[in-house]
C-alpha cells in the first residue's frame, strides 16, 4: 500500500504511545522493586534508581509467607486447569459430535452461567462449603474455580473439535473402535493446541481470582497469592519495595502463559468469527 511519509511517522508514533502506556505501570513495578529503601523517597519520580538492589526479592523469598502463597496458587491454578480441561474436553466433544435432545438446554445452561454476576454466589457458596469443611481449604477453591471455568472452556474445546473433520473417527469406528476410543486416540491428540490454550486460559483465570479466595480462605496456610498480597498490603503498607517484588513474582506465570499464546490470539478469534 502506498502511503505518505507523514502518515507513516504518525502511525509509528501512535503505536509507540500505546506500547509506552501498556508497559509503563509494569516498568514502575519493576523499578520500585529494585529500589533500595533509603532511596525510595528521595528518588521518588526518577525513572531508574541510582543504585539497584535485589534485597526485596531475597527478603520476600526467604523471610515471608510468599513462597507458601505461591505454592498454594500453583496447586490451585494447576489442579483447576487440569480438572477443567478434562471435563470441558468431554463436554465439548459431546456438543461437537452428537445430536441429542438435551443439547439445546445444556448450551442454554452454560450461557446463563456466563451472564449472571458471580458475586451473587459468594454467600451461598460459603454457606454450602462450610459444613463440608471446604472453606479455608485449597480443595474447596479448586472445586469452585473448576465449576466457574467449565462453561467457557467447554465452548472453547467445542470450537476446536468442530475444526477437526468427522471422517477421522468415522474411519476408526468402521475399523471397529468405539467412539470413546476414537475420541481418545485420534481426536484428542489432534486437539493438543486447543488443550494447551484451554489449560492456559483456565490457569490464568484461577491464578488471578480474588473475591472468592478472600471469602473462602481466612488463614495464611491456605491463602492464594492474591489473598496473601492483599493481606500483606494492608498490614505492611510501608514496605513498598517488598510488595512490588512480590507483585513482580505474581506476574511471572501469567506473562509466561501470555507469551506462549499471544500469537494465536487474533488468529484463533478470526477462525471463530468466520465460523460464526
Amino acid at each position: 500500500m502506498r502511503s505518505k511519509p507523514f502518515l507513516t511517522v504518525a502511525h509509528r508514533l501512535a503505536i509507540l504511545a500505546y506500547i509506552v502506556v501498556a508497559l509503563f505501570p509494569l516498568f514502575w513495578l519493576l523499578k520500585v522493586s529494585v529500589t533500595p529503601n533509603d532511596l525510595l523517597y528521595s528518588e521518588g519520580v526518577r525513572m531508574w534508581p541510582s543504585r539497584a538492589t535485589f534485597e526485596h526479592y531475597t527478603f520476600v523469598i526467604a523471610h515471608s509467607a510468599f513462597p507458601t502463597f505461591f505454592k498454594n496458587s500453583l496447586i490451585v491454578a494447576g489442579s483447576t486447569a487440569v480438572a477443567v480441561t478434562i471435563l470441558a474436553s468431554l463436554a465439548g466433544y459431546a456438543l461437537s459430535r452428537f445430536r441429542f435432545r438435551a443439547k439445546y438446554w445444556i448450551v442454554a445452561l452454560m450461557l446463563v452461567t456466563q451472564m449472571f454476576p458471580l458475586v451473587m454466589l459468594v454467600a451461598p457458596i460459603f454457606k454450602m462449603l462450610s459444613p463440608l469443611g471446604l472453606t479455608n481449604s485449597l480443595t474447596g477453591l479448586v472445586i469452585v474455580y473448576t465449576a466457574f471455568n467449565v462453561p467457557f472452556a467447554t465452548f472453547l474445546m467445542q470450537s476446536f473439535f468442530d475444526g477437526i473433520p468427522r471422517d477421522l473417527e468415522e474411519a476408526a469406528m468402521i475399523d471397529g473402535a468405539t467412539q470413546f476410543v476414537a475420541f481418545r486416540q485420534i481426536i484428542l491428540p489432534l486437539t493438543l493446541p486447543g488443550i494447551a490454550a484451554t489449560l492456559g486460559f483456565v490457569f490464568t483465570a484461577a491464578w488471578s481470582e480474588l473475591l472468592f479466595a478472600l471469602m473462602l480462605i481466612s488463614g495464611n496456610d491456605a491463602a492464594t497469592f492474591p489473598v496473601g498480597l492483599l493481606t500483606f498490603v494492608s498490614k505492611f503498607s510501608v514496605d513498598f519495595g517488598q510488595m512490588m517484588a512480590a507483585g513482580i513474582l505474581a506476574l511471572i506465570p501469567a506473562c509466561l502463559f501470555f507469551l506462549l499464546i499471544q500469537r494465536y490470539l487474533v488468529q484463533g478469534l478470526t477462525a471463530g468469527a468466520v465460523k460464526g
Partner: peptide, 18 residues
C-alpha cells in the same frame, strides 16, 4: 502486538494494586 496486549495478562488484583 505482544507488548500492547500484555496488560490483558496481568492478574486483575495486581493491575489494581499497580
Amino acid at each position: 502486538q505482544a507488548l500492547v496486549f500484555l496488560p490483558w495478562a496481568v492478574p486483575s488484583f495486581l493491575a489494581g494494586l499497580n
